[in-house]
Design a protein around this nucleic acid. Structure first.
Lengths: 258, 258
DNA sequence: CATAATCTCGTACAGTGTAAAGAGTTATTT
DNA sequence: AAATAACTCTTTACACTGTACGAGATTATG
């Protein structure tokens, strides 16, 4: 695992590709494929077979060009990954919903909504959790997602910096929280064994361990396991989100009180 | 990036290796190296050169055995990664500090403390953010870390499940929040270019963009950039942590009020 | 028509994880 | 003591990766 992180490519070139700001070359043969075709093919591969299936060769093959022709369009794989991330941050094909209008009075519901949407995004494209970008992805779709997120915090009396840091906090929580569910799903798909089956398999070994160095964990662990089947990720997510909303409420209320 | 996730190896074998429960073989030559040597070498490599530098060949070379001898000791690379993760979750060599005793009255400080320690852990071993495990890492050191984390929530009147979900929430936030700092540092080390320099490089391009689709972001972005140099991650972390503590306080207070 | 720009491609290299099979070493069984 | 089983270590090999390099092929401009 662990993608290449280098990316010697000109940072501006990446942005130009992401924003479609590469003007069509005057001379030379016409391209048989567009950058968007390559990115779409790569995303399809990643969605279907995981990020490890995305190699420059397979992407090239998918659009019908030879392995090295890939590099005519995209400088290196790190750039492809950036393009993939921005691409999937946009609305899915056929999704024509308008961006919702957020009423400040309902801010709790609004924040919960964008948090859940963000979580759903990662569950749609779990490979996005595995790729390491070298820089923030400043593409049009990523910006729209940020805008969207910010909207839930607008007109609550927060300063610009507070708004930004609030978005960052919620997004970071979601990112951390979705990771484990995504992992479990992917491994289940790849190996056919669910986490529950795995727990069952290792249970005999776990019983042979000495838990005296972990008194608190020894008290908590079994109860958690018994009560809701080795961890209900949806419930844990909601729990954390509620606590976060409570925390934000302290700040928001202190503003509106004035 | 994106590690192999498969891991066909017997799940129990991984646990046995992690807990040192492989009994010394009766026959055959003595091993020239121990599993711990391999893991230590791998961690050293990852700390020094990043996770991409960790290949089975280089690890084998580092301990002085041939490439394939690696597989005599560790079934596959996914298992090595699990072992690495548990290894670095333990106290660093020479760290003999006692585990702190948490006084419930200071729970805010306690939770902040473990959150910061967890963050420091990822900053010490940023590659830990990049590796994908196939299952939860149930090693002795990982368990001790969980125990430690749980301790900060003990005796606050929370149920077992609430304690577990609270730990999960804080850990998830930290994980999400540390990612970006770790990325920036690693890329700086690898490419010599800091995020700030990168922003400066792309600024001319950014000025050519049309921000009308992003009205809120267009208002927030520049202010945030101006005010604290393109994002101060420490400050953003503290901000989020304060909100989370406020949120936890609502729950904790409701318990102690009774 | 020549030239410069561009796309496409074949070959090549250094690296990856690891399967398969053999050679050498040790403890147990005969 | 000899044979065997269990074990470590090693060599060779395969399919795969990202991508450097250089050779055509194609197109618009001088």
């Amino acid at each position: 695992m662990a993608e290449d992180i280098a990316g010697r490519g000109d940072p501006i070139k990446t942005l130009q590709l992401m924003w479609g700001r590469v003007d069509a070359p005057k001379r030379g043969p016409k391209s048989r494929v567009a950058v968007a075709d390559l990115v779409r093919a790569a995303v399809r591969l990643a969605d279907a077979e995981g990020i490890d299936a995305v190699s420059t060769r397979r992407v090239a093959e998918a659009v019908g060009i030879s392995p090295m022709s890939f590099y005519t369009h995209i400088p290196d794989k790190a750039v492809l990954v950036d393009l993939m991330l921005d691409a999937v941050s946009g609305p899915a094909e056929g999704d024509n919903r308008e961006a919702p209008v957020f009423t400040p009075a309902d801010w709790r519901a609004n924040v919960a909504f964008v948090a859940r949407e963000y979580r759903a995004f990662y569950l749609r494209h779990p490979w996005a959790l595995q790729v390491a970008t070298h820089r923030p992805v400043l593409g049009p779709n990523t910006m729209r997602a940020y805008e969207y997120f910010l909207g839930a915090f607008d007109n609550l009396g927060l300063s610009e910096v507070e708004m930004d840091m609030s978005v960052t906090m919620v997004a970071n929580y979601v990112y951390g929280a979705v990771r484990d569910v995504a992992r479990a799903r992917m491994v289940k798909d790849l190996t056919g064994m669910s986490d529950d089956e795995w727990w069952y398999t290792i249970a005999p070994f776990l019983e042979t361990l000495d838990y005296s160095p972990y008194p608190v964990a020894a008290r908590i662990g079994p109860v958690v396991g018994e009560l809701y089947g080795l961890g209900d990720p949806d419930r844990a997510f909601d729990f954390g989100l509620e606590r976060i909303l409570d925390g934000l409420a302290v700040m928001v209320d202190s503003k509106t009180a004035r």
